[in-house]
Amino acid sequence: MTITLVAPTVTDYEVSADLSTLLVRTTEGDALSVPAEKLRLSCKCAHCTRARFDDRFPEAFPAIAITEIGDLGYGLNISFSDGHNRGIYPKPYLLSLAGR
């Protein structure tokens, strides 16, 4: 008998009605949420990484909203109301941000 362990992944997603939260569903049937501000603060794109390195990255993004989501298969490209649209969030990273 062979047992194969597969990590849970994101199967579906949507943005809350007020655009402040990303709601995700997993292969295990969990419904999880990640606030837009947490997503924006957790962006690992080159621009945000450089801004952190140069000590120019904001400490908060009050009232930030999710404006668009592109599904790349392995992750989501999330755009925000401050115009930032470079962040790609791999599905395992999204689950870690949601506390899974």
Results as ranks from 00 to 15, higher is better:
residue 40 R to P: 02
residue 59 E to C: 04
residue 92 P to V: 08
residue 50 R to W: 08
residue 34 V to M: 08
residue 3 I to F: 04
residue 60 A to E: 12
residue 86 R to Y: 04
residue 33 S to L: 02
residue 85 N to Y: 12
residue 87 G to W: 09
residue 71 D to S: 13
residue 41 L to I: 04
residue 75 G to P: 07
residue 21 T to S: 09
residue 98 A to G: 02
residue 59 E to L: 14
residue 75 G to I: 02
residue 3 I to E: 10
residue 35 P to W: 00
residue 89 Y to V: 00
residue 53 F to S: 12
residue 51 A to S: 15
residue 83 G to L: 07
residue 87 G to T: 03
residue 26 T to K: 07
residue 42 S to P: 01
residue 57 F to M: 11
residue 86 R to P: 00
residue 22 L to F: 09
residue 94 L to Q: 00
residue 49 T to I: 11
residue 16 S to P: 07
residue 70 G to I: 02
residue 91 K to G: 01
residue 74 Y to P: 04
residue 89 Y to K: 00
residue 91 K to A: 03
residue 98 A to P: 01
residue 49 T to M: 09
residue 45 C to V: 13
residue 70 G to D: 14
residue 73 G to M: 14
residue 7 A to W: 02
residue 94 L to M: 13
residue 93 Y to M: 09
residue 67 T to A: 04
residue 58 P to Q: 08
residue 16 S to K: 10
residue 14 E to Q: 15
residue 94 L to V: 10
residue 59 E to W: 04
residue 42 S to V: 04
residue 70 G to P: 00
residue 42 S to D: 14
residue 5 L to A: 12
residue 31 A to M: 14
residue 95 L to N: 08
residue 4 T to E: 09
residue 2 T to C: 07
residue 3 I to P: 00
residue 84 H to R: 08
residue 69 I to L: 10
residue 19 L to Q: 13
residue 2 T to V: 14
residue 18 D to R: 15
residue 18 D to K: 15
residue 21 T to Y: 00
residue 55 D to W: 01
residue 14 E to Y: 14
residue 71 D to F: 04
residue 65 A to T: 12
residue 79 S to F: 09
residue 88 I to E: 05
residue 55 D to E: 15
residue 33 S to W: 06
residue 50 R to A: 14
residue 77 N to S: 14
residue 5 L to F: 11
residue 100 R to F: 03
residue 81 S to N: 10
